[in-house]
Design a protein around this nucleic acid. Sequence first.
DNA 1: TTATAATTTAATCGC
DNA 2: GCGATTAAATTATT
Lengths: 163, 163
Amino acid sequence: MASCVKTERPAFFIEKILELETPEHFWKLHRPWAEIGAEKENVGHTLSSKQIYPPHPQQMRPTCSWYIGRRPRTAFTNCQVNVLETVFQVNCYPGIQLREQLAVRLELEEDRIQIWFQNRRAKLRRALRESRLQLVQTAVGDLGVRREVKGHLDLEKEEEKGG
Amino acid sequence: MASCVKTERPAFFIEKILELETPEHFWKLHRPWAEIGAEKENVGHTLSSKQIYPPHPQQMRPTCSWYIGRRPRTAFTNCQVNVLETVFQVNCYPGIQLREQLAVRLELEEDRIQIWFQNRRAKLRRALRESRLQLVQTAVGDLGVRREVKGHLDLEKEEEKGG
DNA sequence: TTATAATTTAATCGC
DNA sequence: GCGATTAAATTATT
């Protein structure tokens, strides 16, 4: 890409820097839920904040995604979603305090709440964008239809003349 | 579901939940992106001039103008990132001079470079913080394991005695 | 397949 | 400059 073409410039300081080896990153971000040995015994009741354990104690295959390092997908209940949606209608930017309260009430981690609102806002933005786009498109379409109609009428006139 | 049972706590009035109590929050409620639907034309995106964005009003919570005026996300090429990472390994606080040089070489604005290094440092800090945390947690976990093991051993002794 | 939870990271805000 | 947070873009799961 253009960004990477070598220029004819004399050696910059950067060139020296760039000649150094690039040791790849050896640390991964810490993913507590990916730790195998760190299961908790009290799986029955959640609300243990920040202490995460494999969601499916049965399957311990190392091929599982939680093993690989991704947090297992949270399945919100209808009820939880209802509450979140209701709050969202009034305040789609809940502060930390509200998020914590929601976390307690819904028995979720505060992180899940925050992510939920982020994704929810993205969804709203997407919807608005699409509806705006559709508005434009229908407007343009209307223009096209009118032109077509006008063309047809003109053509009919011509035909009348010609006939 | 358990998440939704009503608790007996009366002190959970909706105003607090929705953060309506603080007038400061009131004006930021539920009004994102809808107000001014100004779709801006797709910017050239590479070396576009610096001031195409509305200046940020004095105090800005997440509000609509803040969203609308947001700079379109820069998509760095792999090559650009590689160079930046390489430089970062040597100097994660590049001065203005080095940043300008990088900007020229990578065909980016110097601002993008600066932001990149800021974010990169934040990432590094986060990683270090979390790896430290993990160290502590595994240490604590080890303690727990040792206690458990000791308990088991004690129990075995007891059983031996009893049998 | 779609919807959406989760991840990564560029950009923004307040300090 | 840093911490926190956001949006954008993407990945991946159910």
